[in-house]
Nucleic acid binder design. Sequence first.
DNA 1: CTGAAAGCGCTTACAG
DNA 2: CTGAAAGCGCTTACAG
Lengths: 351, 351
Amino acid sequence: MNGAKRGASRATTIIDIAKVAGVSKSTVSLVLKDSPLVKPGTRQRVNQAIEQLGYVYNRSAASLRTSKSSFVGMVISDLMNPFFAELAVGIEDELNDFGFVPILANTNENVDRQARVLQSLLEHGVAGVIMSPANGTDAWTLAATLPRSLPVVLTMRRVEGSPLPYVGPDNRTGACRAVRHLIGLGHRRIAFIGGFGTMTTQSERLSGYFDALQEAGLQRDETLIFDAAPTRNGGMDAAARALAHSGRPTAAFCFNDIVAIGVTRAIALRGLRVGADIAVIGFDDVVGAEHNLPPLTTVSADTRLMGARAARGLLGLIEGADPATASFTGETRLVIRESCGAQQETIGGTT
Amino acid sequence: MNGAKRGASRATTIIDIAKVAGVSKSTVSLVLKDSPLVKPGTRQRVNQAIEQLGYVYNRSAASLRTSKSSFVGMVISDLMNPFFAELAVGIEDELNDFGFVPILANTNENVDRQARVLQSLLEHGVAGVIMSPANGTDAWTLAATLPRSLPVVLTMRRVEGSPLPYVGPDNRTGACRAVRHLIGLGHRRIAFIGGFGTMTTQSERLSGYFDALQEAGLQRDETLIFDAAPTRNGGMDAAARALAHSGRPTAAFCFNDIVAIGVTRAIALRGLRVGADIAVIGFDDVVGAEHNLPPLTTVSADTRLMGARAARGLLGLIEGADPATASFTGETRLVIRESCGAQQETIGGTT
DNA sequence: CTGAAAGCGCTTACAG
DNA sequence: CTGAAAGCGCTTACAG
């Protein structure tokens, strides 16, 4: 058995403070919730007693009585990824503002672990769940795990076939914007690098890529699509394949900024120049935004804002709002980080 | 009032399942905790009922009754920093293994916010708290906020004057190792760059820096110590000052790897070569380890492991262990990341 | 092996 | 404005 006692001995309760203040515990409860029903003098005596005894409110007991919880499950697929860390910060911050606290679960992209933590979250009585689903999450399994009545919002990744509300970047429009930018630079053979077909995020970004090609009257060429792990090494590997392609692309649109960094490196290792020889653009701008490391052009949405919106959406659901109102797609902008220095330029763009 | 109902209508309880299984609720409770006191046949009927009704255990109610909590407060000073994100992952993972769940609070280096979240954590009945204290945390205030009886472990940063158990890297020995490495390379004028005197982490690393100088019979020169924010820009600024120094240093020991990246960049911007003209070494290896971005030499401990140790230490305290047993200092190793490629070499070293 | 009973710390009508 | 009473969902001796 795990678990620990609250405090060393018996906790001080509203009964204790009722005794000291010379009132009933109902009255104490009323002052705790700032009820206008209690006389100022009484209120003051009660507050004094609270101060004096160092009383701390037992929210769990209240929660049991009212069946209202202030816990929210925050299920993150990979907290080591700065992208999701930023998301988590956005969620936590917003939740805090509304008096809720997040229980963190990092699934590390493991669907079994995800199933376990969801169960645990239920037992802990969360009022709702915000989750970036682990890769490979199955809509049916998810539906079977979560009570129909539990408010849930998916974030950053959809689950194919699930009707759950979704908060995330506008992948399709963003990808289209990125590829349109490359086309505007004169590129005609543009590779799509990174991600796997099983990821809804990839298919959305791929759709945007195709949109831009079509809009420019360019032929789509499936051989220019290179699946790869959404990591730096994935980017390096895929770039090697792309560069060996008989009709070598002159530009690469990368699944995300981390892939783009790998691609950039692979290009440099072959003695080619990024930009001059091969243009590279990524999606998301987390690594760059935080450390401002590589000069890189990306298209990205405000991750933290999306975290906040996910939280707000969930809180709405908890209050009984229509699930449709919880969804939100983040607008993307083109960010051109020209050099190694701090200077950077943002080219806005409403979706 | 915030909070939401558990489920849509009344939750199913052990009473419901007792009825269906034809036993008393005590018996249900016993099977829930796998008591050997219950007959296999009965156990099976109960489990069937549980399955059938989709019962979910209400851990909060149990917690109220037993005054044992499975919540742990995880107070992180800056979750956007990948260093702390990795720490959080280590903590969460270990906690999970022992059936505890972390309530996450990101203080964002704000001591007021920290005080608020600690209070909130108490009200939510956490069994203990693991925290990386926000910069500027005062021992006295902290002691006043936290009940004497609450198990707490500090991690990654000490709070000056606080006797709370501490889990973190061996800053002094690590810094000494780093500077010794530079001295071994022939350097005699070695700058210390980054951090502020108010950070216990800086003073510990500074001590190690002095240790190495002294051990080599080198004079300490306070003008070679450059305080700066522990950020990339802080590193750039401080490096500019260091490079303008009349007796320009030939090497820099940086407060952390992020500062080191800034220093590296500042050196490059001036047309000097890192390594050949000025050697750079950092502490911690988070940015590099994750993205493998810049070639950089660092001295670092295993952050995730330290998270796990912090968690284990806290769980020990919760079980009543001696506070002294909760402390742990992580051994550091020298990591030489030679080039842009994936190759890297680790030169071990027991502390 | 199983059941009846008390109680964890709170809230909430309901009387006064 | 304030008090007595019931109850949220569980656990835990205590009898049988």
